[in-house]
């Protein structure tokens, strides 16, 4: 009985103290999150162009269809997962949109197509594709650009109150990986299916896995 009244008093004291300190609060608006991630993507793009130079083949019609489709899909995945990150900053229960999952499934077709195409063309092509001399540069540069997008996403999530921490980690990784690769991708002149299908998708997978494990401790509240 005594314990119950002590608890009631301590809660009443806590409520009184919090009410006394109450000040107007700035509402967390999803549009601000989208703008923040968009700004980070632009920054990553400008940085990539400054370091690697823009590939003018993109505008002169030299880019292959594979290149355009892959980067178009990266944009779709980036938008869907960035929207997922933005909305996950606001607590909610119930059904969640599964657009990121479907868009990732669509993107997954590209590396599968690349591998099938290399296998059908003979073992030598597969070996060449796996030992692509531009692989390391494309993967690492995309991941560096992804760090900028991930930073903005984490900043946003820390301002909010994500309640599905693991999901937010995956979404952050996928958004950062796809938008980072897109930011770097426009500087890459290698536009074969084997190259973009493997080495412009690998950073998304790597970033997603890193996001799953590295982001949760940073956004837990």
């Amino acid at each position: 009985m005594n314990n119950t009244s002590n608890n009631a008093r301590s809660r009443a004291d806590l409520i009184a103290a919090m009410a006394e300190d109450l000040t107007p609060v700035r509402r967390v608006k999803p549009v601000e999150g989208m703008l923040l991630i968009a700004a980070a993507t632009v920054l990553a793009t400008v940085g990539s162009i400054a370091i690697h130079d823009f590939w003018w083949g993109l505008l002169s019609g030299d880019a292959s269809g594979y290149f355009l489709i892959t980067h178009g899909l990266l944009l779709v995945v980036g938008l869907a997962s960035a929207a997922g990150v933005v909305f996950s900053a606001q607590p909610r229960v119930g059904t969640r949109g599964n657009a990121p999952a479907w868009s990732v499934a669509m993107l997954a077709i590209v590396p599968v197509a690349a591998i099938i195409s290399m296998i059908s063309a003979g073992g030598e092509h597969l070996h060449k594709g796996m030992n692509d001399p531009a692989a390391w540069l494309c993967t690492s540069s995309s991941l560096i650009a992804a760090v900028v997008v991930a930073g903005a996403s984490i900043l946003w999530l820390r301002r909010g109150a994500p309640v599905s921490i693991e999901r937010s980690g995956w979404l952050t990784g996928i958004a950062a990986g796809s938008l980072g690769t897109l930011a770097y991708g426009i500087t890459c002149p290698v536009d074969s299916l084997s190259h973009v299908g493997l080495w412009h998708i690998a950073p998304v997978v790597i970033a997603a896995v890193i996001g799953r494990f590295a982001v949760p401790p940073l956004i837990r509240w």
Partner: peptide, 9 residues
Amino acid sequence: YTKRGTWDP
């Protein structure tokens, strides 16, 4: 109290 800004009216 800390996260009250995350509710959308």
